[in-house]
Design a protein around this nucleic acid. Structure first.
Lengths: 191, 191
DNA sequence: TTGGTTACGTGACCTACATCACATTCGAAA
DNA sequence: TTTCGAATGTGATGTAGGTCACGTAACCAA
């Protein structure tokens, strides 16, 4: 499926736009391709855009003391990602985004999103709902962190992203769960 | 300061409305008073409203196995709270909200918020930005959870809410940090 | 004032997970 | 095919924080 159709199907779950309106909506998005391992946002960069994933898998992560990596989000097709704190507050990136696999994305700049939102009430509605869902998911993950042990969080993760097990190396799964790769490895063998 | 002025000042940070527009905006909010200890949302309730705090302090929390409590948010004046997952998905509450102190709030129903957002583009803009900020804060807290030990999270919390130390019992602070009250207590004495 | 509940401190002990060290397997590039 | 680095498994050991147990202090309500 081509980029335009993927985005159209995605936003149709929240708002309905005429063909003409959607064409305008889509005109703000810029397609980009990246290959496996490539960095999209690096720590310290200025952040202008957010990214809608068409194919492939990205990760948004934080690196502590140049050593430990924590993954905030795996971004699969139809997911959005960026360093939103940097994007909205116009500060330098503290979050990195890079490609776990080759990936195609649609890129939307901060300025264009705001322009779109002010031009088209439905667009503002769409982005409100998108962020709502992200907020609720984030709260849920926070609770899971406080409440569940590693094993349960691991099972939760696989339920949420079943494809992940075969797609990404295990140490990245550990970095999402917030445990060491050794602990995750021992989780498997313990059955 | 009266309720109307507090809300007006709060939303003026994000959008500008005429007096007439704001009067309409405000007309959807219903003032309510609660006393210390009172439950606003209990687990299993249907959730119709979100709450804007005028005075006092609420907590939004989750109870695991009828035993352990985890606090998602302390809601101070000009903060918003609810069980948003239940509110937006029209499901039963899994999060509780109650009063740490006597409190006055403005109550906005889900239906009225959506009506307001569709009537007034600026309102939609306001709620998009409010949720944005919540999402970013939630991501930040998640990172802090993965990255920092209890002591550092405790210092972070006191920096974010300096009033809290004298306002709420220590076991609630422990429940926000996600540690046992004993561990928090030992943190104090260790310095 | 009194009796009961809630808050808080502190010791003893236990457990999940981190860290370090090393072995093994796998996959891509030469 | 060979080779080298990345990914993964696994043992030994250290530690932050949980849990249980108990004591004291503060705060209401009768």
């Amino acid at each position: 499926m081509e980029a335009k159709a993927i985005l159209q199907q995605h936003i149709a779950k929240t708002i309905s736009l005429s063909e003409e309106q959607f064409a305008h909506f889509f005109s703000y998005f810029k397609p980009m391709s990246f290959s496996k391992g490539q960095t999209i946002i690096g720590e310290g960069d200025t952040v202008d855009c957010e990214y809608f994933v068409l194919s492939g898998c990205l990760k948004a992560f934080y690196i502590n003391d140049e050593i430990k990596m924590y993954i905030l989000q795996f971004a699969m097709p139809t997911w959005w990602t960026s360093d939103y704190a940097a994007l909205y507050n116009n500060t330098r990136a503290t979050i990195n985004v890079d490609c776990i696999t080759d990936a195609e994305v649609l890129c939307l700049s901060n300025a264009d999103r705001e322009k779109l939102c002010s031009e088209l009430h439905e667009a503002e509605h769409f982005f409100r709902w998108r962020t709502n869902r992200g907020y609720i998911a984030s709260q849920k993950r926070l609770l899971s962190f406080m409440n569940n042990d590693t094993k349960k969080r691991y099972e939760e993760l696989l339920a949420l992203y079943p494809q992940l097990y075969n797609l990404v190396p295990k140490h990245l799964i550990a970095a999402y769960l917030g445990v060491s790769r050794e602990t995750l490895s021992r989780l498997y063998s313990a059955h």
